[in-house]
Amino acid sequence: MPPTDDPYALPPLAPARAMAVRNRLGLTTGQVAWAVAAYCGTPVHPDLVHAWEAGTTTPENIHVKALAAALWCSPADLVGEATTLAQCRTVAGLTVNETVAALGITRSQWEKAERRNRWQGTPAQTQALLRTLCPPPPCFVAACGRTEQLRVLLREAVTTWWPTYVGPLTRIVPLDPAVLHHVLERLHLVYQRWEGATGGPAHQAAQAEVRAADFLEHIDHHLWHLLRETLNPAEDPSRPAP
């Protein structure tokens, strides 16, 4: 029997990624269903595998791990972006003991961090976290409890003189300042396009005003989307965008 499954440690399955791996191996859904059933010890119909790949049904973690075994890959190859510290650890293939040893913290400290999805380590421990677990920027910022601060800075940046905000933002989002400079400039230009359109004809101006307000409301989502485009231009499109 497979080990007891952790109900929250894996990101959700990325359907198109699972289908792409299966197609690359030349396997049918029936063959995959048979292998998944053998791993789990319970029957699995090919239609269920098809539903997973279509995104109409979300498999449980145990089925994602079974699917990975059937497709001769890591579960990390089949799932979307990690959104919690627990998911980052699992995607990295680390146990709790391996994680605490790498970060230099106690087991109880890490278990609390996973349970609350809140990171409060020292600067040295934070650098170890970034090296060891490689959390996606949105996950790291959320775990540090700084999402709202990020939104405030981004709104100020795109509506004023954005270059002065690159430094403050690098202290929140752990990325190369050159990357943030590039992305922040793009955000600024997009917002200015909508803002400039508010001076046109009444109907168009009203639409532009709504779009500009919506852009500011979801400014952090736009940041993450542009960062993914910049850092992973050839990334599998099945990875979900925020």
Rank of each mutant, 00 (worst) to 15 (best):
W72H: 15
L180W: 02
R131H: 12
W110T: 02
H50G: 08
V79A: 01
C139R: 08
W72P: 01
Y165H: 13
G104T: 06
W119N: 04
Q204L: 15
T122G: 03
P3K: 11
L103Y: 02
A206W: 10
A101I: 00
P240E: 09
Q192G: 09
E60P: 10
T198N: 08
R211L: 14
L169E: 06
T230S: 12
T84S: 06
V44C: 10
L227N: 01
R228W: 05
P7L: 04
V173A: 06
L175I: 04
R155V: 11
R115Q: 13
H45R: 09
H182M: 13
P46M: 08
L10T: 01
A14N: 04
L187D: 06
T58S: 14
E53Q: 14
Q125V: 03
T95I: 00
T84A: 03
R22K: 03
E148Q: 12
V32I: 09
L27Q: 11
L227D: 01
R131A: 14
P240C: 04
A178M: 06
C73I: 06
A68W: 02
P59D: 01
P136W: 03
H63D: 14
C73G: 03
A197S: 13
D5A: 15
A35Y: 03
P240V: 03
R116S: 12
P177M: 07
P123Q: 07
T122L: 10
Y191D: 07
Q109S: 12
G93A: 01
T99A: 11
I62P: 04
V44H: 02
T99M: 06
H222P: 09
